[in-house]
Structure formats: C-alpha cells, structure tokens
Amino acid sequence: MSDQPSVSPKVSCKGVDVFYGDQQVIHNVSMDIADRAVTAFIGPSGCGKSTFLRCINRMNDTIEGARVEGLVEIDGENVNAQGIDPVTIRSRVGMVFQKPNPFPKSIYDNVAYGPRIHGLVRDQMDLDEIVERSLVRAGLWDEVSDRLDSPGTSLSSGQQQRLCIARAIAVGPEIILMDEPCSALDPIATARIEALIDDLRQRFCIVVITHSMQQAARVSQTTAFFHDGRLIEHGETEMIFTNPADTRTQDYITGRFG
C-alpha cells in the first residue's frame, strides 16, 4: 500500500518554464514533491522529465542558453533567488546518473571525496566513519569492506551504481535525484538498487526518473507523467497504474503510444 505523503512538501514548484534558447521545453509545471517518499517521473524520451528534474538542483545553469522561469523552492527557499550559491544547493541535492560514473580513485576516496571538499570532517576518524556509514546505507559495505583501496572502477556495474549512491549520500543531502539509475543494470543489480531506494526513503526525499513502468510502480509512492514538456498527471502511484485520470497517461503506460 502507498504511504501518505507528508503534509508539507520538500520541494515545491510553481509555474516552471524552461527554455533552451528560443525553444520552450517545459511549460508551466507546478508540483509538490513529498519528503521521505519516492516520486517517479515517467514519460516518453524528450518529454522534459530530465530537464525538469535538473531545475531542482540548478543543473540547468550548466547548460549554455538554458533559462528557467517560475518558482522552485526547497523547504520554502527559492533555489534561484539572488545570492543563493548553486554549489550549496547541489550539496543538499545529491544526484545519481544512468551510467555509474565512479571517479578513477579507490572505493574509499570515491566516497570520501565529497565530505573532504565540502569540509564536513575534522579528522581521519570522522572521515572513516562517514565512508563506512555511507557504504552501509548504500548496501555495499559488506561487499567492499576488505578492499576499500581497490579502484572504484574494479567493481561490477551494479556495485559501481551503489558506490555512486554512497558517494551522493556521503555529503548528507536531503534530496536524491536519480536519472534512470538502473537502466544499465541487470535484474539482480536492479533489485538491489530498488531495495536500497525503498530503504533510503526513510531519510530522504527521492525523485527517480525511469522508463520502466514496473520500476516506477515498484519503488514510488507518487508518480508524475510528463508529455511534450507538460506535467499531464501527478498522483498516487497506485492510482496512476490502475486507474489513471488522463487518457494520455493511460495510453503511455499501457504501451499505446511511444
């Protein structure tokens, strides 16, 4: 059964438009995203779900010619307000990508990197503790505790993805954005990540983009369907997958258009 989303949203978006140059790619999207819950973004390729996801941690700033209008708030704070440092935002919002991208460093250093550069630790003991805790939370500790000095790239791709999740949570974010985190993984590795996502939602606000309807149904409590840069439908996952309100949602999830 789906859990009730908490009362005050972690992320609140109002009338968000995104432009790439002259082209508008996101049209007037308003949405609240609950804390300590998993929200899935679904929709055909090019529908704008990744672009919209990137509004939350200001990743669109890094794209030449991209412009975001409207309001994006985390805990009521406008992330695009003057004087807000995008680096601070990104430390509150962790991100995990489709392809596992560990640094060419040891397993230990992959996880230690963030806490070090953000100055989150006083001494080595502190750092050891964060690295261990993050790896434990990412469900990887038991598999790597005896070889923390091995390169991160020596792990299997499923393990690498969990390493990236450990790296993301090491800096103590509040929100974790995952852009197709399992699309390069086999079913067993996928199941481990999904179990991990379910576990992590006790502490974090999580948004997952996925092309697998089954995955969205399995991991999320809330689902948002995007099409042509618009938010078509947003509601309880259970309702979206048994009785969606909009025929476009219906057609998409039942495989009637692509």
Binding site: M213, I240, T242, Q250, I253, T254
Partner: peptide, 9 residues
C-alpha cells in the same frame, strides 16, 4: 505482457 491501467483491469 505485464498489463497496466485499463489493460490490467
């Protein structure tokens, strides 16, 4: 086929 929505129903 793992039917969903109206197909599932």
């Amino acid at each position: 086929r793992q039917p969903l929505a109206s197909d599932l129903r």
